[in-house]
Design a protein around this nucleic acid. Structure first.
Length: 370
RNA sequence: GGGUUCGUAGCCUAGCCUGGUAGGGCGAUGGUCUCCAAAACCAUCGAUCGUCGGUUCAAAUCCGAUCGGGCCCA
């Protein structure tokens, strides 16, 4: 694979992603400075993930905001395919969704697609994906959502509510559409072929516009949803996309729950975090200390720095100092890693506490079939 | 229901025709190097060859059955 080749699909992400190219390829819109200003005007602040381009692309976010300004509220929808334990990359769109919910005071639906992971992962049983759905839900709740405005949908549990909506959608998507969108072949099981209609269902669960914060790799599902929405008399869902969170081992892939050593899980202990970062985090440092002092490091490819930028250092000034010190050679890779380890571990200490509490809160969050 | 094809370590795969208890690649682990990581170079671990039975001195290899996956036809 050459340097500018990359693959982004809902099931596979590979290569060094050029996000400007991806925007063209997917046909989305870049989040412009005007749009950022508009968000700032309405919410009173601009989230660091927006400022830093962690959320970099959208579909019709402008329309959602225009409607909001006219007094028409929207609702939020995001989710997670429960194929394994939660890692810190998953928390990015969830954190952002929480911010959106607070700023706009809107409802949020969180879909756990246990059926889809059962269909798409040959080795997982339905029991496995259900178990992971529960585990993932704890991490979601631990971020501090309001149970009055936040409901967790589990596909196999809430099918009664989802199915009539999914049926509306399914009738409007034909095999050619899904084949073209997802590259399905004759080997693809029919669960997968139907599945996108189920992922669409929460878009229409309330009769309001919907905004979906999500990893850009999940965009194809909603491209189809957007196509058929007008055909069933609904508004197209609006999307806001975040970049892929790199694996510890470097650019050229997203953090994956199946890659143990390249991934920080929310349940990792402080010593595991320390070991993983020190032993595996790809660095932008120079081959030895003399050269590093002389030439400086490259924060743009340094995974530790990227994690600080994406999630763990919201303070722009502090981040800027780290960037400059690393670039000038003042800060060594080992020292940068120490900063990140401290940040992650203090985050996880609180998160893990909240995660324990979530076990008693989960019932308040689960969606009741209507 | 019929046909066909495949099933070898975490993954991909050679070997099967012409029987003599497995070879490679990726990955993983450890080491050297480095402030770390990567790269590079060493080294190591890892497979009762889907299962059961038969033939044979000897079966991943031949035969039968069975389970599982894929495709085509009905």
């Amino acid at each position: 694979m050459s340097a500018d080749d990359f693959i982004v699909t809902p099931w596979h992400v590979e290569g060094d992603i050029d996000y400007d190219k991806l925007i063209k390829q997917f046909g989305t819109e870049k989040i412009s400075s005007e749009l950022l200003e508009k968000i700032k005007k309405i919410t009173g602040e601009d989230h660091f993930m927006l400022r830093r381009g962690i959320f970099f692309s959208h579909r019709e976010l402008t329309r959602i905001l225009d409607e909001y300004e006219k007094g028409n509220k929207f609702f939020l929808y995001t989710g997670r395919g429960p194929s394994g334990h939660t890692h810190i990359g998953h928390l990015v769109p969830w954190m952002f969704a929480k911010w959106l919910q607070e700023k706009f005071d809107v409802n949020l639906y969180f879909q756990l697609t246990d059926d889809e992971k059962f269909y798409s992962k040959p080795n997982l049983t339905l029991e496995d994906t259900k178990k992971f759905a529960y585990e993932n839900a704890l991490d979601f709740i631990a971020l501090g959502f309001d149970p009055e405005k936040t409901k967790i949908i589990i596909n196999t549990k809430n099918i009664q509510t989802l199915y009539p909506i999914a049926a509306q959608v399914a009738k409007k998507i034909n095999f050619s559409n899904t084949k073209a969108t997802f590259g399905f072949t004759n080997e693809t099981n029919i669960g997968m072929i139907f599945y996108t209609s189920l992922q669409s269902a929460p878009c229409f669960i309330e009769d309001k516009p919907v905004l979906i914060p999500l990893g850009v790799d999940q965009d194809p599902h909603f491209r189809l949803t957007r196509d058929i929405a007008p055909k069933i008399g609904k508004q197209k869902p609006a999307l806001v996309h975040n970049i892929m969170i790199p694996s510890l081992e470097g650019p050229g892939g997203k953090m994956s729950a199946s890659d143990e050593k390249g991934t920080i899980f929310t349940t990792d202990s402080p010593s595991e975090v320390k070991k993983k970062i020190n032993k595996h985090a790809f660095s932008g440092g120079q081959p030895d200390i003399e050269q590093h002092r002389k030439l400086g490091g490259n924060p743009d490819i340094d995974v530790s720095y990227q994690y600080l930028r994406i999630f763990f250092e919201p303070d722009d000034d502090k981040l800027k100092t780290i960037y400059e010190d690393y670039k000038s050679g003042k800060l060594l890779s080992g020292e940068l890693k120490a900063i990140l380890i401290e940040k992650i571990n203090s985050f996880l200490a609180i998160h893990q506490e909240n995660r324990e509490k979530a076990k008693n809160q989960i019932d308040q969050f689960l969606f009741e079939n209507k």
